[in-house]
Amino acid sequence: MSIILDHVNYIYGQGSAYEAYALKDISLEIKDGQFIGIIGHTGSGKSTLIQHLNGLLRATSGSIYYNGEDIYDDGYDMRTLRSKVGLVFQYPEHQLFETTILADVCFGPMNQGLDKNAAELRAFEALHSAGIPEELFDQSPFDLSGGQKRRVAVAGVLAMKPEILILDEPTAGLDPKGRDEILDRLAKLHAEKHITVVLVSHSMEDVAKYVERIIVMNQGSVMYDDSPKNVFRYYRELEQVGLAAPQVTYLMHELREKGYAVSTDVTTVAEAKQEILQAMQIGLPKEL
């Protein structure tokens, strides 16, 4: 189970005055069960990239394989692909349309051909794992808070039981509490149900805590593709393309410069705390 992109190019607005390369020669593999972060500045092509993964956009050249099958083959069933590769768009709450939350979440499973009962069963399960309390199920989705709406929208995709879940900026415009709720739910899904999760974001801070692999996009190409630890080593280069490493990375680098024996490879606050405590036990640098 994997998605392989082979030399994918995408040209936006071909033949018009606005012609531009949105993706340039992208080759990568998304393996089963991974938790991946795709990071890039606005306009780096990250949203364009993920729309290729479920066939919404067709590459200008290059091939994409899902489980070894070329998705551009004649007769390849795009609808099945779309139910296997769940894509949650940016501001997904804007796509809610039904009269009740339950009915809205049922939309996906019903499109898959399930009957009403089976779809509602799926919807129940999805809403539970999205953390929506049961007494809200029969309410209008438009009465919910922003964070809740978004989780309902995510549930709408989850109810289709995708093997891969891709989320475009799931935390945009949410307060810290709403952000942590969504990200924690995703981490739980990944751990318990072994779904492959791809998280698109422009914030390293959000991503560093959860993902095992980071793909950095810049101007339509893959700039780095590695573990968070290795990617953050390039924190100066990241700054040049309008990104930043997590704040702890900067802190550790500065401590290191001041002569403390800390590792600069930590990516989360918890790890940093550990490192600093250890360094303190060893003692202050001699020259101080």
Binding site: R79, R82, F89, Q95
Partner: peptide
Amino acid sequence: DKIMKAQMARGAS
């Protein structure tokens, strides 16, 4: 375009 794609991602046609 965006909403169309989002609903297509949920299996709509």
